[in-house]
């Protein structure tokens, strides 16, 4: 990989990011000199940016004060950007369930009050996946997550709720009622709310402490949603079987 300073052009916005990348690559104890050499960056610039990053705790100095390590402030970025990993054992269990049924089965994880697609059904790929991640109030998995959060407003974008179809819940009071219902039932469903013609059922995958950490999402055409729901009990067992592999 090429870390040359000139090639990417000196830019005040990208310097900190490239420095973080170098420290992440070289590991704990990387010195300022090594950073400036790796990026062919003027040392004074490197020192300035490094100190700014240390100030904001994206980096931390090691005890000898010479070296750097990734700081705790960066976990937010990494957690938000890195795709969740699903162990092969968990995939195998999900695939076994998929092979017996004619509807989509997705595994969606909750992270920092946001949805992350952990395992998508290869045969029936997610439609409007970006919309689902962006507007949690419109999808079954999203509503399950909102119900799990104490303060659902923090996970929703500011302003009025987005109307994706005519069935999308846009009234905040109505949404609170639905979330209360989800908390009691322990599952969330959605028909034509995210996308016209499709429906989903989301079942919780629980962490050892009982909180919901992921959703097992069954999805099919709206008119065949009853058939999907017939498999709910089976899927619930799958969800509790999955939990030890995931958390």
């Amino acid at each position: 990989m090429n870390y040359r300073y000139e090639n990417r052009g000196p830019s005040t916005t990208s310097n900190p990011l490239r420095i973080l990348e170098v420290v992440a690559r070289l590991g704990t104890g990387t010195t300022a000199k090594e950073v400036s050499d790796a990026l062919q960056m003027p040392p004074a610039t490197a020192y300035r940016v490094l100190n700014a990053l240390v100030g904001d705790e994206y980096l931390a100095r090691t005890s000898d004060l010479r070296g750097f390590a990734l700081g705790h402030a960066i976990s937010g970025l990494i957690a938000a950007a890195a795709p969740p990993t699903v162990p092969a054992a968990a995939r195998a269990v999900i695939d076994a369930f998929r092979s017996g049924n004619r509807f989509a089965v997705h595994l969606i994880m909750f992270r920092n009050a946001a949805l992350r697609i952990a395992d998508e059904d290869p045969d029936y790929p997610l439609q409007s996946a970006s919309e689902m991640l962006r507007y949690p109030h419109a999808s079954a998995a999203g509503k399950l997550m909102l119900a799990e959060l104490g303060d659902s407003a923090s996970a929703l974008p500011k302003g009025p709720l987005m109307k994706l179809t005519e069935h999308t819940i846009v009234d905040k009071r109505r949404l609170e009622e639905v979330l209360a219902e989800i908390r009691i039932k322990g599952e969330a469903s959605e028909i034509n709310e995210l996308e016209q013609g499709s429906a989903r059922l989301a079942l919780p995958v629980r962490r050892p402490n009982g909180s919901v950490g992921a959703a097992l999402c069954l999805s099919g055409p709206s008119e065949r949603f009853d058939t999907v729901c017939e498999h709910a009990e089976e899927a619930r067992q799958l969800a509790s079987g999955l939990a030890p592999f995931l958390f």
Binding site: A60, T62, A69, L70, H72, I74, S75, I78, A79, G213
Partner: peptide, 15 residues
């Protein structure tokens, strides 16, 4: 006040 383990990126994302 030296850097402590908890000041560092822990290697695993926050769930």
């Amino acid at each position: 006040d030296e850097t402590r383990q908890l000041d560092l990126f822990q290697g695993e994302p926050i769930p």
